[in-house]
Every structure is written in C-alpha cells, then in structure tokens.
Design a protein around this nucleic acid. Sequence first.
DNA 1: CATGATATCTGACTTAGGTCAGATATATTC
DNA 2: GAATATATCTGACCTAAGTCAGATATCATG
Lengths: 291, 291
Amino acid sequence: MLDPIARVRRFNRAVTSEVGALDTSFLGRGRPLGVARVLNAIGHGRSDVAELRDYLALDSGLMSRFLRSLEEEGLITTKPHPDDARRRIAKLTAAGRREFEAYETLSNGQAQSMIARHSQPEALLAAMDMVAAALGRDRISLDEVDPRGAEARYCLGEYYAELSRRFARGFDVALSRDPDALDMMAPRGAFFVALSDGLPLGCVGLKGHAGATAEIKRLWVAPAARGLGLGRRLMDAAETAARKLSITTLRLDTNSALGEAQQLYRRTGWTEIERFNDDPYPDLFFEKRLS
Amino acid sequence: MLDPIARVRRFNRAVTSEVGALDTSFLGRGRPLGVARVLNAIGHGRSDVAELRDYLALDSGLMSRFLRSLEEEGLITTKPHPDDARRRIAKLTAAGRREFEAYETLSNGQAQSMIARHSQPEALLAAMDMVAAALGRDRISLDEVDPRGAEARYCLGEYYAELSRRFARGFDVALSRDPDALDMMAPRGAFFVALSDGLPLGCVGLKGHAGATAEIKRLWVAPAARGLGLGRRLMDAAETAARKLSITTLRLDTNSALGEAQQLYRRTGWTEIERFNDDPYPDLFFEKRLS
DNA sequence: CATGATATCTGACTTAGGTCAGATATATTC
DNA sequence: GAATATATCTGACCTAAGTCAGATATCATG
C-alpha cells in the first residue's frame, strides 16, 4: 500500500486524468489545442516564429498552418524580421490580445478554484512546488544575476526568514555582516540564482575581497527543491566563478543548526578552520583551496 | 513570485510537459495510446467490455475497433458473457499478458527512476500523495469495511503511529481501550475507510454498545488528505450509520493535543462532557444527541 | 411471442495533429 | 556573384481518435 512505485504511479494517474481537463480548458473556446498553444506563447511574448517553433517543438509546416489559421481569425499579424527578412515576427492584434486574456482568465480561475476548495492551501502549494521542481529538475538553470534584482532579493528574503525560523534566538540581518552588493558582482564576485520555469529555487553569493581570497555567502535552497542536488550545483557554480576571477582560497561561515549545509561542505573538500570574523551568528568556519 | 495562482499554473506546466513523456511511454512499444490503455485496463482485471468502455470513457464503435485490433495482434480473446450473450468478456492471452507485463515494467521503472534520483524521496512522495489526493478529491469514496481488513489495518497503524508522534509521552495501543472489531461491525457498529484510487486516506469507527448509545473511535485522516474536508465526511458517514442502527446518543474521547479534531467536533454539534472512561490517553470527552 | 431495450459491431465520415518533399525568398560565405 | 545555408510556406499524404447512423443479436417484459 505504501510501495513508493505505487505511490508515484497513483500520482501519475491522478494527474493524467486531470490533464484531460487541463487540455480541454484550452478548448472550450472553439479552438484546437495546437493553435491555442501558439496563441498563448505569442501572448506570453514569444514573437519570433523560429523561437516559437523551437519552444513548442512543432514542425515548420504545422507551425506555418497554425499561424495562417490565427491570421485568418484576425488574432495575429506577421511581418518579416527587420534584421533578417527570412524570419517572421508574430504579434497579437487587439482581438488576439482579448482572446489571449480570455484564456488567461480561464486558466487563472481554474488555478484559483483548486486553491479555494482547499482549507490548507499553503501546504498544498508547497507540495505542488516540490513536485514541479522534481519533475522539472533537468530544466533548472543557474543564472548569474545582479544581487539587487528581483529574483535575488526574493531568495535573500526567504533565506533570512529561514534563518530566523531555525536559529534558536532568531536572525536579524542588521546585526549580521551584510555583504555589499558590489562585492558580489563582477569583477570582484558573483551572485547566482537557480531558476525553474521562472521560480527562484536557490541562490549563492561569491564575495570577492582584495587579493586572491573570497567568501561564499547566502547559500540557500528552497524547501521545495531540497533533494535535487541544487546546493552542490550552486557551490560548483560559485567555485567556477571564483577560479575565473583568479581566486585561490575560499572561505565561508555557517551555523551548526544548518546541518545539511555543513554536511555538503564536508563532503566537497572544505575543511573546518578557526573563526575569522566577529559576526554573532556563525559558529562554524570553513576553507577550501582551489587548485 | 509567490502568487498562489502562478504557483498552481507552474505546477500545471511542469506536469503537462512531463505528461507527453508519460503518454509516449505507453507508446514506445509500437502501439497507439488508445489501444495500449485498453490492454492495460484488461490486464488490471477489467474484463467486461461494457465496464471497460465506461471506465475509459470510449465510444462503443471505437472500443470495438480497439478490441479487434488487440485480437488481431493475438493479445486478447473475447467470448460472450455466460449470463448475457449480448455482453462480451475480454481476456489476455499468454502473449497479451507478456505485453501487459512489459508495460508494467516500463511504468514501474519510470516511477522508480523518479524516486531514485531524489535524495529525500519520502518528502517527494508525501508531496505527490498530497497533490494526488487534492486532484482526485471528488473521487474519494467512503466504504464500509471489516475493521480487520487490509485497508482498515493500514489506517489504524498510521493512526497509532501519529498518536505516538503527537502525544508528549507517546502512545501504546496495549494500554488503551482497544475496541473489539466485532463492536465496529454490523449490527452493533460500523467501520469506514476513505479510499482514493485504492489508497486509504482516512478512517472512522462506530462502536455500538448495548442500547441506544455508541462511541466514535479511531477518526484519522492521512496527512496527505488534510484540508479536503474528509474528517467531516467520515463523521457524517458514521452518524448516518448510527442513525440507521437506531442509536440516539454518540460519545467520543479525544486528546487536547489533537487540535484539528477537537475543532471539528465543536463545529459540528458536539458538546464537551465529563470523563466517561478511565482510558489513560484522552483528556477531552464529547457527546452528540442524534435527532 | 411480439415489442422494445441493450450490447456490440460495421461502415462512412470528420477533426486534430503530424511528416515530408519540394518551392520560394533571403542571408552567408567563399 | 555563384554556391550554399536558412526560414518559411505549400501541397500531398498519413495516423490516431472520435462521432454517428444503422445492422445484428440477444435479453426482458407484458
């Protein structure tokens, strides 16, 4: 009854029997799924026909027909790409935008009703995030970003919130040595976020100092993404960035309440060292020499 | 970024882009999905053609063609129903069973690899259970069963395990007043389990005494199914059964550590009463008069 | 046993989705 | 500027899936 394989297959069945409904929600407006998907992708800002075809994995002949069909309905217009007249650019007309919005409203309403019927929506959403992250694990990208950007700020906010949950005496950023954003950007350092279909699932900062030393800061992996090896991927990205910046020694501080992080460091070539700062929160210090 | 609707839609996208793979896993053996689904359903024991058609929601013409195609491949045989020669019964041949097993192996392997790649499979499985329960909430059935059967025993095991996690000093069934199975079966009482696609998600027992009084025992809802109103449905079923058995007064005992249960009782017409037994675990006692 | 209901089958037809081989126009490279 | 590559389009063709109107055989009922 609790056989893991049976549980996964039960999940698959539940999902596939609902997916009919998912698909037909795209129908319901008198348009086949294929055409609706193209309209939807254009509405979400994909205008280049070649990119569309690639994204939706469609044959060029089929794509062409779908575009023609949308044009005949008066929902899109196409024109040649200004830099390359072989390529075409598709754009929604006013009617097309209205139709796209109608799909969006339908889709949002469906999502909304799923949540509204549940009396513990936060638990359900967390479960959905976790499943989505696991299903899409091969599509999680690591991007180097400005630590002041929206994704980075979101990750840092979640990171601080988690620290204050996990530290017995809470966590207050103001009391910690908050790294300057410029220290975590080229040419001194770097900041990475892990993105799954637009949702930030983790981050790590590399804070460069003068000379050949740098610190790893703000390593965080969203609860929904734990177990996918994202911490290691983030650390690898930070190390690679450090090497590119000719850094030879990395250091970091952490707290013994963060067991999984500590375990990761010990498993990946870090060695414990003496305290090297007076930040009140960390009680464990590590170093790694890059060769 | 944390907009609930966006999170649900992200989940839908993740799932639909994997469902292609789910579908094509049924292919991969050179047989279209429709036919493969029929083979699969027959393999899982559905032999009556009318039942198959109903289960798979297929048109009778289409069903007939699928059966013919499987017969031509030598995977099934059909014969008239012994009691009604209009109906037909489909059965796998030896070759059909081999083919069915091949699909099963493929499907199990796929599920297995999903789990194997995750380093916290239990968390992922719990999330999948929760999502599956929420998606299939309208298909959760309440069945009256023998409390000694497999489903009931599973629920009771989970129930005891949860009590020992939640009670500060643990829980030992042997010390509790374990109701006799016969007290929770007709004509004295009843036992219900909630089933979602075969997985037990909750249970409740009605323990009849001599006279017009009965007790509610062993109300449990699986963590994956919380928030779906299953506790209430189970209690309603128990009440209805009690009325049928001409019971006029229901009692129950519970523990203040089980907040959500207490809340449910208070909201559904139960009133707190004095202790009515010497079981060491409960510290709260309720009564409800049935009209 | 006549009548209507039911289960399955068959043939004719439709739609959605997709493949593939050129045709056409434009860009890139030598 | 010729040869080649690329992006899109068109026509011909195919499969999967599904709908629908009878045909046929059997069952249930008065």
